[in-house]
């Protein structure tokens, strides 16, 4: 499985205009709802519920909000680059500008964890993060996500 198996080209937002963490979650939930046909509210609730346990910001300006949805039929990923960084309550205090949403079906179990680990590993790569920040549009971002270094390992 590669990252581009998780993210479709239309699930990339190249410059999301948001002011706060909650708004980020709202916007990506709305877009995810459009693409999956699921209820926007329930996606947002699932993400919010996870954030209540602790932030999904992993440091260096990256956040990976995630959660499980019973009605989903397959793993769903969405990538958003924020127009300007917002505070995400990250442990390193850095505001977040790269957001990867990962939704898993109920019962995905180990696959969910593997996919999360894969996304985290990809974004932790400073070179990749730099390229993602420098990419001009959604197409360029998709190309970075599809790079061999991103899909290998």
């Amino acid at each position: 499985m590669t990252i581009t198996d998780l993210v479709a080209p239309e699930a990339i937002l190249s410059s999301l205009k948001v002011n706060a963490k909650k708004q980020v979650l709202q916007e990506i939930a709305a877009r995810a709802a459009e693409l999956t046909g699921l209820n926007e509210r329930s996606i947002f609730e699932v993400l919010l519920q996870r954030e209540r346990l602790g932030t999904t910001a992993v440091g260096y300006g990256i956040a990976i909000p995630h959660g499980k949805l019973p009605k989903l039929d397959r793993m769903f990923g969405l990538f958003a680059r924020l127009d300007r960084p917002v505070d995400f309550e990250a442990m390193d205090g850095q505001p977040v500008d790269l957001v990867f949403l990962l939704l898993a079906p109920e019962g995905a179990g180990a696959d969910h964890l593997k996919a999360l680990a894969r996304v985290a590993r990809l974004l932790r790569d400073q070179e990749i993060a730099k390229k993602l920040r420098a990419s001009r549009d959604a197409q360029a971002i998709y190309a970075v996500l599809a790079l061999p270094s991103a899909t290998a390992a």
Binding site: L53, G54, T55, T56, A57, V58, G59, Y60, I64, M91, L116, A117, A120, R121, L123, R124
Partner: peptide, 8 residues
């Protein structure tokens, strides 16, 4: 630690 999620 980078890449970890944090929980309260």
């Amino acid at each position: 630690l980078l890449g970890d999620f944090f929980l309260a």
